[in-house]
Structure formats: structure tokens, C-alpha cells
Amino acid sequence: MNCEKCQELLSDLLDGSLSRKDELNLNLHLEDCLDCVEVRTDLKAIVEFCREHRGEYEAPPNAQALWFRIRNLIEAEVSPARIRPDLTTREKGGWSGWLGRSWELSLPQLASLVAAIVVVVSLTTIVGVRRWESEGVNGSSPISDPVTALSAARSNITQRLLQQRQTIDYWNQRVELNKARWSPQMRETFDRNMRVIDQAVADSLNGLNQNPHDEVSEEMLNAAMNEKLSLLKEFADL
């Protein structure tokens, strides 16, 4: 495994959604590659920070409008910056020109600039954290009351399950195609094991229905779904 592939899979590793084989390969690579270990450490720190501070940030009332405002602010800052190097190189050149220019700001201008930077950085951080938490769901409505939070969590789980079920359906079809070649004993074994995993999935879903924020049920659901996928893939080869 190379570093590029390794770093692609690191996020899945931290989420615990990698297959055993990939995890094994990844761990072998991590044993030898200090750069990738460093990336993993950084990513882990970010993920843990986000998990620890989950729910501490209020979502902006309208994420899209906020993005437009941020973009306008950034564009407003970028435009003079594009012109400035030409002027400075013509007039004074390099950093000295830029530094000279910055001294021309009045105190209120400087205060406004600092305030604008603080606002942009804060808003970007808030939006970034919210987007990280919601795993890239764009334009999501604000989650302010517990009922909305509950339904959002449920819809998150449902959405993820739906994606996983599509993959599972694909492998299930492949298994069904090959099943005719198996001995009756092998078919019974497969069905019996699939029932055990399905029961584990059902138990976890039941736990999540009772409490959508139950991390243990969520972990068990992920593990059971991975196990199911793994079983299907392995038997689809037969």
C-alpha cells in the first residue's frame, strides 16, 4: 500500500468502517511510514476535538446566505490583494511596499479590518465544524430543538443505512447467482450465519430507535453491517 492510498483510507480507519483486510494492510503500512502515522495522529485529534465539542456550536440560521457573505468578504479582500503586488513592485517592491502600505490605515480602518477578519474566521470555523459534524450534508436546517435534533439524527442513520443497503443488495444479487453451485450444507451455513448478523443489525437498530444518540448501538450497527458486507463478499466469490 502506498501513502496516497493509506491517507485516503485513514478517515475510514478512524470511523471503524474499514474491512479487516484493508485495516490489516493499513496497519502494516503505518508500522513503517512515519509520515502517514503523523497524518493519522492529526486527523484523529481533529475528529476527537469535533466529537468532544459536538453540540457546542449553534448553526447559522441560513447556511447558504452565510456562505455568500463569506465569499463576498473573501472576494473583497482578494481583489485589492491582486492589484497590490503590481503597485508595490512598481513603486517600492516586495514586502517593504506592503508594510509601508499597511501603515497608511487609520485606527478605525484597522479596527474594522481586525473585526472583519475575526468575524470571517469565526464564521468559517463554525460552518466548518457544523459541516464536519453533519458529514457534508449541504444546506441543512438549523437544529435548535430536541425534536428536530432527534429526527435529524434518525434521518442521518436512515440515509447511511440506505447507502449501505445499496451495496449489500449488489453483493446479495451476486451471492444469489452463485448459490445454485453450492452444496445444501454450504447454503444452510450461509443462511444461518446471515440470520445471526441480521439479528445483530436488528438489535442495534432497535437500540437506535429508542435512543438515536446511543453511540454503542451505532458502533454495533456499523460493525454488524460491515460484517454482513464482508460475509456477502466472501461467499460471492464461491
Binding site: 479487516r20 490489516l24 451455513t189 444461518r192 450465519n193 464482508s230 460475509l231 466472501e234 461467499f235
Partner: peptide, 8 residues
């Protein structure tokens, strides 16, 4: 040491 039984 890795021992993996897919089913039972």
C-alpha cells in the same frame, strides 16, 4: 497470527 472464519 490471523484466524478468520467467514461463517461458522
Amino acid at each position: 497470527v490471523r484466524a478468520h472464519v467467514s461463517s461458522e
